Computed example of a mutant assay.
Amino acid sequence: MTSALLTSRVGASLGETTWGVASIDRDGTDVASRLLPADGDVEIGSISKGVTAVLYRDAVNRGEVRPGDLLRDHLPLSDCAAGAVTLESLAGHRSGLPRLPVMPGMLGRTWRMWRHQENPYGDTLDELLEQTRETSVGRPKPAYSNLGFELLGHAVAAAVAMPYAELVRERLAAPLGLDSWYVPATPADLSDSAVAGATRSGRPAQAWTGEGLGPAGGIRSTLTDLASFAAALLEGRAPGIEALEPRAPFVGSGVRIGDGWITSSVRGREITWHNGGTGGWRSFVGLDRSAHRAAVVVRASTRSVDPVGMELLAT
C-alpha cells in the first residue's frame, strides 16, 4: 500500500486535524500523515500500558519479579490494602483497584480538565503512593484500572532499581531503536519536537505529563517509532512478547486479555490491540498476528481512532 493510497483510505475519517497512520505487513511499513512532523512526538496515552505490560513480562522472564509478588514487596505500601495486590492481577486488570486513586480535589481536577483542558495527572510517584494508601480495594474482578498499571510499572521499575522512565529507555527503547521515546515528568521535560494535542472542538490541550502517570499513560513517541514498536511486536522481537497472549476473559463478549493487551474478534480475525486517550490525543495499535499485519493511528483530537485502526486491519 502506498502512502497516497493509505491517505485516501483514512483521510476522510480522520478529517482536517493533525494525524498520522502506519500500516505494517510483510512488505514493510507505510506511513501517511497530515500536519504531523516526522520528528514530532505525541502522547500515546494508554498504549503506555501495553509498554508496561511487556516490560513486566520481560522482568518475569528475567526472574526479577514473579507474578505472585505483592505490591508491598517492591513499593512502600505495607500499611494499606493495595499492598496485598499481586502483580499478576494488576497486569490482567483484575486486582480490585478502582480506575483512579483517591485524590484530594478530584472533582476540581476533572472540572478543570473539561473546562480548561488542564492535565489532571501531574502527580509525583510519592503523591501517587500516598493516594494509593487512602484507596480501598474491592473484590477482584475484570475492571480497567489506570491506577493498577501505574503501580505495576513503578513496582517493576523499583524491583530493578531504576526509575520507570529509565526502565523504558534501557529495556525497550534502546534495544529496539525507538530514539524518540521518553516519559516526561513535568512540562519542562517536553522535547522541542513535542506536538500539542487538541480537544474535539479544536482547542489546544495541555500536555499530560507526570511521574506517577508514566506507566499508564505518560509515554511520548513519534509516529514512525510507534510503528517500529508495533512491527517489533508483530515479529516477536520485542522483550516480553508473551504479554500479548490472552489468558483470561475480559469485559465484553468474546474479549480476552493477556498482560494489558486485549484480544477481540473482528470480522472473524483475532486482533490484539491497545488504544490510548489523553486530553488532546487519541491513539491505537492493533495487530493481526495470523495475517502478519499491524496498524497504528494517532490523532490530535479526543475523537476515537479505534474504528480507523480496526478497519485497516480487517480489510
Rank of each mutant, 00 (worst) to 15 (best):
residue 68 G to N: 11
residue 240 G to K: 01
residue 171 R to K: 11
residue 146 N to D: 14
residue 229 F to T: 02
residue 167 L to T: 07
residue 82 A to C: 12
residue 31 V to T: 15
residue 289 R to P: 01
residue 191 S to C: 03
residue 166 E to K: 13
residue 231 A to L: 08
residue 33 S to Q: 14
residue 256 R to K: 10
residue 169 R to S: 13
residue 89 S to D: 15
residue 85 V to A: 09
residue 301 S to D: 13
residue 93 H to K: 07
residue 306 D to R: 12
residue 106 M to W: 15
residue 240 G to V: 06
residue 159 A to S: 14
residue 201 S to H: 11
residue 6 L to A: 10
residue 9 R to E: 14
residue 268 G to K: 02
residue 238 A to F: 01
residue 229 F to D: 01
residue 222 T to M: 07
residue 139 R to C: 02
residue 185 A to D: 12
residue 46 S to T: 10
residue 14 L to Q: 09
residue 141 K to C: 06
residue 297 V to E: 11
residue 108 G to L: 14
residue 57 R to A: 05
residue 268 G to Q: 07
residue 142 P to A: 15
residue 174 A to E: 13
residue 226 L to S: 06
residue 307 P to W: 05
residue 132 T to K: 01
residue 95 S to C: 09
residue 75 L to M: 06
residue 179 D to M: 04
residue 277 G to S: 15
residue 269 R to H: 11
residue 284 F to T: 04
residue 59 A to W: 00
residue 59 A to D: 07
residue 117 Q to W: 11
residue 60 V to H: 05
residue 172 L to Y: 00
residue 282 R to C: 12
residue 50 G to D: 05
residue 233 L to G: 00
residue 16 E to G: 10
residue 262 I to W: 02
residue 309 G to E: 11
residue 223 L to V: 13
residue 111 W to I: 13
residue 239 P to Q: 00
residue 262 I to Q: 05
residue 40 G to K: 02
residue 17 T to D: 13
residue 85 V to K: 07
residue 51 V to I: 15
residue 284 F to E: 04
residue 18 T to N: 06
residue 91 A to V: 11
residue 86 T to H: 08
residue 288 D to A: 12
residue 188 A to F: 03
residue 120 P to E: 06
residue 180 S to V: 10
residue 18 T to L: 13
residue 57 R to F: 03
residue 72 R to G: 00
residue 129 L to F: 04
residue 211 E to T: 12
residue 78 S to W: 06
residue 82 A to W: 03
residue 185 A to K: 11
residue 300 A to R: 05
residue 272 T to W: 02
residue 166 E to M: 07
residue 72 R to W: 00
